[in-house]
Simulated assay, not measured.
Amino acid sequence: MDIEFPGVVPVYHGVDLRLAFPAMVDGRHVECRISAEALKDHFGAKSIRETDLHDAFRAHRAEIESAARWMLLGTTSSCIVLRSGTLRFLKCH
């Protein structure tokens, strides 16, 4: 499975407090999302404010993309969501 992450700035979605970033999986677009809670709990976001979420994402982009890659390997979905509990599980393995 070929998974790539374009280096674009994630898009903030304030309604459900998340950042969205794209992945290309075997040539198809998949939307990856990470919750504000996950960014706070696991990547040091100071608050759920947009700028704080972006700062945490930038600082930990490689780790976030690695977690997204792990999830993408187990699905054919067109959208995945990294939540705090998912990341807690990943850190146990």
Rank of each mutant, 00 (worst) to 15 (best):
G14W: 10
D41A: 12
H60W: 03
L87Q: 06
L72H: 00
K91V: 07
M24N: 14
T75R: 10
T51K: 15
R28M: 02
S47K: 06
A67P: 09
E65A: 05
R33G: 13
D16R: 11
L53F: 04
T86G: 03
L19M: 08
D41N: 06
D55S: 11
F57Y: 13
S78F: 07
L90H: 11
T86S: 12
K46I: 07
R33P: 02
A38G: 05
R58A: 13
L82T: 11
P22H: 01
V81M: 12
S84R: 07
K40A: 00
S35V: 02
R28N: 03
L87H: 03
G85V: 09
I34D: 10
R28Y: 08
L90P: 09
G27Q: 07
G85T: 15
I80P: 02
W70Y: 04
R61Y: 10
F21N: 06
G74D: 15
A62V: 11
K40I: 10
L72Y: 02
M71A: 11
D2C: 03
G85K: 15
C79W: 00
G74Y: 08
G7R: 08
I64K: 01
V30D: 03
R83N: 07
R61V: 11
Y12T: 10
R18W: 08
R18I: 14
A56I: 09
S78L: 01
I3S: 14
R33H: 11
I80W: 01
G7N: 12
W70I: 15
L90S: 02
V25T: 11
R88P: 05
E37T: 12
G44S: 12
E4Y: 01
